[in-house]
């Protein structure tokens, strides 16, 4: 469930043209940084906004919803880190609107994860990428 929208995890990678993406970077124990990015198609964000707001969304509302999605993900991840005795600090969300839709690139298995979700009803896609870097390696 993401902001009232029923979603399901896809077992196989999909392909999607990203309309918006919002990123928050979390630093864990000053050892690793995880850039968490929510990537949404226009259909996905519009459907979520339709549930949330009850009307067609403006560009500003699309941006706000995408940023809120990644904020929710990061809150959960920070809570998980805290439960495991791990310190975390994070940035504010940085949200990008792609004028022309951009194909989502794969994330190498050694440096992160890419998780695919879709709306149960419409099958509109969104993705969550977690790109991990070691802080002491610069």
């Amino acid at each position: 469930m993401m902001l009232g929208a029923e979603t399901e995890l896809l077992q196989e990678p999909g392909t999607m043209s990203v309309a918006l993406q919002s990123t928050i970077t979390i630093e864990l124990d000053e050892r690793v940084a995880v850039a968490a990015t929510v990537h949404v198609t226009e259909a996905f964000v519009d459907e979520v906004n339709g549930i949330l707001l009850g009307h067609d969304s403006t560009d500003a509302e699309r941006l706000a919803t995408t940023a809120e999605m990644v904020s929710r993900v990061v809150r959960r991840l920070r809570a998980h880190a805290s439960e495991n005795g791990c310190q975390s600090v994070c940035t504010l969300p940085a949200t990008i609107t792609h004028g022309t839709f951009q194909l989502l690139e794969a994330v190498g298995e050694d440096c992160g994860f890419l998780l695919w979700f879709r709306r149960r009803e419409s099958k509109a896609l969104c993705a969550l990428s977690l790109v991990v870097t070691l802080l002491d390696e610069g």
Binding site: M2, L9, M69, V73, L77, F113, L115, L128, L130
Partner: peptide, 8 residues
């Protein structure tokens, strides 16, 4: 898994 649960 925590990341998955945050959306799913």
């Amino acid at each position: 898994n925590a990341a998955m649960r945050s959306i799913d």
